[in-house]
């Protein structure tokens, strides 16, 4: 399956600003069943672009715009191939909990067991764990499937209930939120069980016509990966009650949202920022024509950066 994705981010500032410095995490990953075949990045106003890969394998692009500007636009176009991946079994063997304990604490996966700032347990989280009867039973995979489903039924999808920097308690109190809240809460829940968990930012391809997907179409998306013995990292989408497969396009992974925001920036000046994000994910069975596209080129247009990012839906 091939996808072409366009991700447009536009910032408008109430006053002219200068010296904006911005980091962008928008290039889909190439690993496992997914390949990023092409990635094109355009910034306006014009800026020199630098990129690197961090220790998690995420591609980060960054640039700065020294002069005064009142608008900034970023257009990221990518073409991604996703093949059928790992077939997730119905359940894991009975000794899977012991295997998990033996391996998870004595390797780098330990980093995903420790609480991270945005997915740290709170009293409300413990209450939820009690309400949903979340504890070790059966095998880890069965428990993860159950938590994914319970999250889906317990929380109402409500785009205006939380902000990009809301702590999990806001969603826990109202039982409403977006994919970012679902993911942080589920991460905190499963780390309590001793299962390493990480945050994935990316896109979900929504089928045309009637879709059971609850997360917003044409938006960025986020979900959870849990580390399991024998299987490695397996994706769970609590917002849509799915085990992740060919429709989930992975961009960046981290301990929580703070490690993977699509954009993060700092500028000089005192201005209110208005942020607009537009995402298009289209699917074809054949490889789209690549003639016009050279990977990692960038052209110019008109605009700058701001304090934070766009909330993932």
């Amino acid at each position: 399956m091939y996808y072409s994705i366009q991700h447009i981010t536009a910032f408008r500032y109430s006053e002219p600003i200068s010296e904006s410095v911005m980091e962008v995490r928008m290039q889909p990953r190439s690993e496992g069943a997914q390949r990023c075949l092409s990635f094109q990045f355009r910034i306006s106003p014009k800026a020199g672009l630098t990129s690197y890969r961090d220790y998690l394998g995420n591609s980060i692009h960054h640039f700065d715009i020294p002069g005064r500007h009142q608008k900034l636009a970023i257009v990221a176009d990518s073409i991604v191939e996703v093949r059928p991946g790992l077939v997730v079994p119905e359940r894991l063997p009975d000794d899977a909990w012991q295997q998990l304990d033996g391996e998870a604490r004595t390797s780098e996966t330990l980093d995903y067991l420790l609480a991270s700032a945005l997915a740290a347990p709170t009293d409300l989280l413990y209450d939820l764990a009690g309400d949903l009867d979340i504890r070790r039973r059966d095998d880890p995979l069965t428990v993860l499937r159950a938590i994914t489903e319970a999250m889906y039924h317990t929380f109402e999808y409500a785009p205006d209930a939380t902000e990009v920097d809301s702590p999990i308690d806001v969603a826990l109190r109202t039982r409403q939120g977006v994919c970012q809240d679902y993911s942080h809460i589920m991460i905190a829940l499963i780390r309590q069980l001793g299962i390493p968990a990480r945050y994935v930012s990316g896109y979900l391809y929504h089928r045309t016509g009637n879709s059971a997907d609850r997360s917003a179409r044409d938006a960025t998306h986020a979900w959870v990966e849990a580390w399991l013995p024998q299987l490695g990292w397996v994706g769970f989408d609590p917002t849509n009650n799915l085990i992740c497969g060919e429709r989930h396009i992975r961009v960046a992974v981290g301990r929580d949202y703070a490690d993977v925001p699509p954009t993060r920036g700092v500028f000089k000046g005192s201005a209110d920022t208005e942020l607009t994000v537009a995402v298009k994910v289209a699917q074809t069975d054949d490889l789209p024509i690549l003639d016009d596209i050279q990977p990692e080129t960038y052209t110019s247009g008109a605009m700058t950066s701001s304090q934070e990012q766009s909330q993932q839906q």
């Binding site: 961090d54 220790y55 604490r105 004595t106 390797s107 780098e108 330990l110 980093d111 420790l114």
Partner: peptide
Amino acid sequence: GKILADRVVPYDLIYSCRHFRREMRG
């Protein structure tokens, strides 16, 4: 991370350290 893999210094000690900068890895 050889000293961690060899279990001379525990992983959780390093990963739980406030001054451990993951950004510096690699």
